[in-house]
């Protein structure tokens, strides 16, 4: 099944607070301009609201919060990533905001380096590995872990 691996090899890179992250492109449904978010009361800070994606209601998640970054509003290059995920055994659409969407790159699993134990600012449980591309560091996210609902609710 070479095809599958090749698909898996493709990743969408985006930046958050100057850092480049990547998620496998298979999870990406589409990329849209920022839309107004409806706040959900008493919601988890990771999923603070809801968003209307072409007639479907998708939860809006805040990756910055999960990765321990400072909260920030949308900027000129901000984009909303609509992801097709399976969360808690349910397939669902999830929307998240990225500061900018960069590109689609090929990342070979074999090229992945393990996350260095030291000197990483982000919680390692959400990271799958690090890849180098044209001298820049790309952090590949562990989608399942990253988008899992907060359990200690």
């Amino acid at each position: 099944m070479t095809e599958t691996s090749e698909i898996e090899g493709m990743a969408l890179t985006f930046s958050l607070q100057g850092e480049t992250f990547a998620i496998p492109v298979t999870y990406v449904d589409e990329i849209i301009d920022p839309l107004p978010v409806t706040r959900a009361p008493n919601a988890d800070a990771f999923a603070p609201g809801l968003i209307n994606v072409r007639g479907a209601i998708a939860p809006f998640v805040d990756l910055r919060h999960r990765l321990g970054m400072k909260p920030a509003g949308p900027c000129a290059t901000s984009r909303v990533l609509v992801l097709d995920l399976v969360v808690g055994g349910e397939s669902t659409k999830v929307a998240m905001m990225a500061d900018a969407v960069d590109d689609i790159t090929e990342t070979n699993l074999s090229d992945l380096e393990p996350v260095p134990e030291l000197g990483v600012r982000w919680p390692t449980e959400y990271l799958k590995g690090v890849a180098k591309k044209d001298g820049a560091l790309i952090i590949l996210l562990d989608v399942e872990a990253t988008f899992a609902p907060t359990t200690s609710h």
């Binding site: 969408l12 492109v25 990329i31 849209i32 590109d103 689609i104």
Partner: peptide, 29 residues
């Protein structure tokens, strides 16, 4: 840019079939 990006995503998900299109998409981008 956004369209091209989405096209690229679509192309990437299509695997080898989308490879040619991915190039176009990236050029468009």
């Amino acid at each position: 840019d956004l369209l091209a990006l989405n096209a690229a995503v679509e192309a990437a998900r299509a695997g080898t079939h989308g490879k040619g299109f991915a190039v176009v998409a990236s050029e468009v981008r």
